[in-house]
Structure formats: C-alpha cells, structure tokens
Amino acid sequence: MTAFLNQCFSGLAMGGIFAILALSLVMIFQATALLNFAQGEMAMASTYLAWQLIQHRVPYWLAFFLTVILSFAAGVLIERLIIRRFASAPVLTVVIVFIALVFIIDSVVGWIFGYQLQEFPSPFPDHNWFNNPLVSSHQSGILLVTLIVMAVVWAFFRFTTLGLAMRAAAQNPASSRLVGIKVGWMLALGWGLAAAIGSIAGMMAAPLVYLDPSMMSSLLLYGFAGAVLGGINNPWGAVLGGLIVGVSVNLVGAYLVGTQLQLAVALTMIIGVLLVRPSGLFGRTIVTRV
C-alpha cells in the first residue's frame, strides 16, 4: 500500500510539472491558436540559464526569479522577431517555424553548455517535510509551486487590466483593437508568459531528470497530453489534465507496462482523447463555419 501511495505521489509531483508545462502551452494556444512545439526547448534553455546563475553563486530563489523574468523577455522577443512574420501563414509553415526554433535552441544550448548531464539543485530541504514517509520535499514542493503558479496566473487574468486586455485580445481581436488594445503586443505578452511559466516547469523538473539539452522532449509530450486531455483552450483543465497524466502514466508504467513504455501511454492518451473528445475533458467545443 505504501508503495502504491508512493507511486501516486511521485506521479502527482511529475504531474505538477506536466501541468505547468501544459499551462504554458495553453497560454500560447489561447493567444494564437497554435501548439508550440518549441515550448520544451525554450524551457530547457531557461533552465540552463538558471543553472548558470546558480553556478555563479547566485542564491537559488534569486536565480529562479531572474530566470523567470529573462525567460519572459526572451519569449516576447521570439514572438516579435520571428513568429510575428508568420502570423497569416498556413499551419504547416508555422509548425515548421517551431521545428526550426527547436533546432536552433537545442544546438545553441548544446554549443554553449555541452551535452553532458548536469545536476540541478532543488530548493527544497533534503528530508521529507513533517517526516512523512510518502512524499519527498521536492515532490511536495513541486505541487506547492504548481498551485502558486496557478493562483498567480488566475489572479493576473482575473484582477489586472492587462490580464483582461489579453483575454479580450485572444477572444475577439477585432473588437479589442477598436477599444484601443494593442493586440499584437498582447500576443507577444502571451508568448512571454508562456516562456516564463515554461521556465518554472524546467527548473522544477531538472532536479529529477538532470539537466541535458534533450531533457524536455519527453516532458513536452506529457505536457501536450495533459493540455489535450484537459482541453487545450482551458487553463484549469490543462492543469488538471497534467496532474491526471502524471499519476496515470506513473501507475501504468509501474504496474502494467514498465517505465520504458510510459511515452507510449502518453501517445495513446493524446490520440485517444483527440479521437473521442477532441475538445478534452473541460474544453469548449468550437464550431467553425465552412
């Protein structure tokens, strides 16, 4: 029983990472109706940045927030410099641009930092909180961070004018433009937010999976699975989806198919959800006129 609960909790912790990643995917999807295939590499680059800062003896949390801010800026830059040029391009073109970004980020990071595995510190203490036998402090820390990220994102969109403007720009660009919202900048901000949120996922994942330029590729797939399961246009659904994916992949991996096929579980989930219920568990169904 303890082993089972252990599996559940470690799945939940991984699910927290997937949830944050899914949330960042949803940010971009909501703003631009695109799936960002480069999200994983962006998060990986951010994590390397944090690692570099920590190597230079910057205190962890300072490095953490610096990374979040710099990632935000990088996300905005990527949107302004590259993605913007393809705003009215066909889906295929945009997908290829994302793939190009994957190549560029991956190889530049590999060039600067090399391809060997690096250890990444966890900000949480070594011993389990309250001496509980089930959850390590990093695992519970991830869940805590997930909740905080959710709360901050929710508060941002609910209580700030900027959040309201971003929601408006995503929902009805034409009318938003008429009331004076700079829709283009809102999209860039969406990218910035996604990059910032993604960097948190990277920094939470790195102590578990070690730092390496390819660390995010499988995590991104789980993030996609979470986002699709919860509904790609619903942030809360995506978070819940990420948690569900974390637990179920971990349990199926531990008890049914072995850890090597965990990715195949995610693949099956993605295709299954897309076929049976394309809008996900909590997403809005969008009807388009032909």
Binding site: L35, F37, V91, V95, S217, S218, L221, F224, A225, V228, L263, A264, A266, L267, I270, I271, L274
Partner: peptide
Amino acid sequence: ALATFALAIT
C-alpha cells in the same frame, strides 16, 4: 502534427 510528433518521440 501533434499526434505524429508524439509517435516520433515515442
């Protein structure tokens, strides 16, 4: 694209 991407990673 997503489904085939998942296939490639898997």
